[in-house]
Amino acid sequence: MSAVLEVHDLKAHFFTRRGVIAAVDGVDFSLERGEVMGLVGESGSGKTVTGLSILGLIDPPGRIVAGSIRLAGQELVGASEEEWRMIRGRKVAMIFQDPMMTLNPVLRIDTQMMEAILAHEAIPQEAARQRCRDALGRVGIPSPNERLSAYPHQFSGGMRQRVAIAIALLNNPELIIADEPTTALDVTIQAQIVAQVQKLAAEMGTAVVWVTHDLAVVSGLADKLAVMYAGRIVEEGPTADVLNRPMHPYTLGLLNSLPVRNPRGRPLNQIPGAAPSLLALPPGCPFAPRCIRAVDICRQVAPAETDAGNARRLRCYNPLPAAEAA
């Protein structure tokens, strides 16, 4: 089976007056149909820019400087604006942290949903309406028929996010990129949305990239996990495998700092220091200043990606042995 999405050596840089920000600097991954990938990392590690690159939404001063993004075999890097219009919303859709990025506050929900369908297909009004109703129903909005003629402000935050997901689903895209879609939501509402997305991926075969900084959310949702640090994926593999046997010191540090992994009331195992500025990256491995396992070479040459077996990949000179951490 061929992959829905293949990202190879993607580099997206921002050319600012203060210097070049290598927001995404060599990212590789691929996704199969119905597969959910969790993309985790701290803020500024390049998660959003990765997602925006796949939608061709990087604006100046940023641009994709290298690499390839293939969606169902079609190369997206260098596609014309015309081609992008056919791709965006139809083959790949994005869900943002703030649903109002997708929703227009002054238009009714049905107007916005119909527009999203009719932009790509010439189908009768009634058929389009039916599809909108179905989509709202699928994301668990009660009485979708009445809700269609409401305005976004008449929905709660969780409902709005579900409407945004419904719009993303309208054209049965092959890929959905969800950028921190539940970060602003409450625990019980987050659980509802995660459950919906899980069901959709399984039933519709939609591939999902779920961007978040919360390891706990993806642990229950994602098939595989990619951990980003300073513009690169430093560790990737099947979710349970990575969480139970992290090999990269950063992944281990993140896991060990979780309160549930520490005895109650005792100091947490913290990672010292803070993420580096992308404008002043240290030479070598960007994690080296905070890494307890750093060796000499770490401070000289950035580690390349290596295959660690069991569908796991890694960027580290001195990884933890796969057995130790468990």
Partner: peptide, 9 residues
């Protein structure tokens, strides 16, 4: 409903 790392998928 609290997400936990422990539970797995």
């Amino acid at each position: 409903n609290m997400p936990r790392v422990e539970t797995g998928k």
